[in-house]
Design a protein around this nucleic acid. Structure first.
Lengths: 155, 155
DNA sequence: CGGATATCGTTCAGTGATCGAATGAAGCGG
DNA sequence: CCGCTTCATTCGATCACTGAACGATATCCG
């Protein structure tokens, strides 16, 4: 009966039914939980630190500029993240002999251990988060999110 | 010698294959895009403002404390968000006659219009984001995300 | 009734994350 | 050699957000 025009009252679906909205809110929740998990390590690390390690683990040794570009943050932020990670021996900072302006970052064994701990923690969070999903749903979700990530050009 | 495709260890999947990681990164992207869309409105609004409108639209008139609890932010933040939205005539602030300490917020028609604009913008972002998904995937994704949202107690 | 206590909204100062501009060292083109 | 660019770093500024203090109101209990 109601609106043939179709514009008046799409109030039931609503903004909160859109993907961007759900992704935004769930993303915050996910990041919060991961942040709390990180805090239990008691190393003063934030998600961005781990993001740096991940961006580093992907390819070979990388300059800080390159890292900043990959992560979408200011180069000056990479400095402080790398400072902290270097103190923890998770990364090594070496001047590139071919171009002595560049600081080449590489992942150390300690950094790999740290990444493993994060992976374990993340899997635990995943399990808790998806407790009410079927295996098929879990798989479909992971697949779909991966497609979105590819679409926007992420790791 | 050590890498290449031989390692059957759980190193290949990696942290970036976990849901929390994907949700975190995609959540940031989604929020960034929504933020940019909001900026085109040129009303000085941030996602949190819209979050307040959504939290408000859900139920009836609500006190600021209640809103703060729902949104998981400090009551003092609700003050400034509501200040801005009130200037834009998107919400009305009225002292509760039953309890004159409480400021009761209600969504105005202007606020509803604003929400509609946001919904339209979000649907556009959704369409772009999921351009490479099949309809079935899109549906499954929305469903799964809704289950996660329910699981963690979100709108 | 009346004083102690709790609650609501508001203000304000402080903190943390992030950025942008300025700086200095190093490379590069002519 | 000399300007021009690029890299890392430092530093000051900004923005969102919080927590503590405050005043006004409400509620409880003797």
């Amino acid at each position: 009966m109601s609106d043939v025009t179709g514009t008046a009252s799409p109030r039931l679906p609503g903004l909160s039914a859109t993907l961007v909205f759900k992704l935004g809110t769930l993303g915050t929740v996910a990041t919060d939980r991961f942040t709390r998990a990180l805090e239990t390590f008691d190393l003063g690390l934030k998600p961005k630190h781990i993001g740096l390690l991940v961006a580093l683990g992907a390819g070979a040794a990388t300059s800080q500029q390159e890292l900043a570009a990959r992560m979408g943050v200011a180069p000056s932020l990479v400095v402080s993240l790398a400072d902290h990670l270097e103190e923890l021996q998770a990364v090594r900072r070496v001047r590139d002999p071919q171009d002595r302006r560049r600081q080449v970052l590489t992942l150390t064994d300690e950094g790999r251990r740290l990444l493993d701990r994060c992976e374990t923690a993340s899997r635990d969070l995943d399990a808790d988060l998806t407790a009410e999903l079927t295996d098929a749903q879990r798989a479909a979700l992971g697949e779909a999110l991966q497609l979105l990530a590819d679409r926007v050009g992420l790791p």
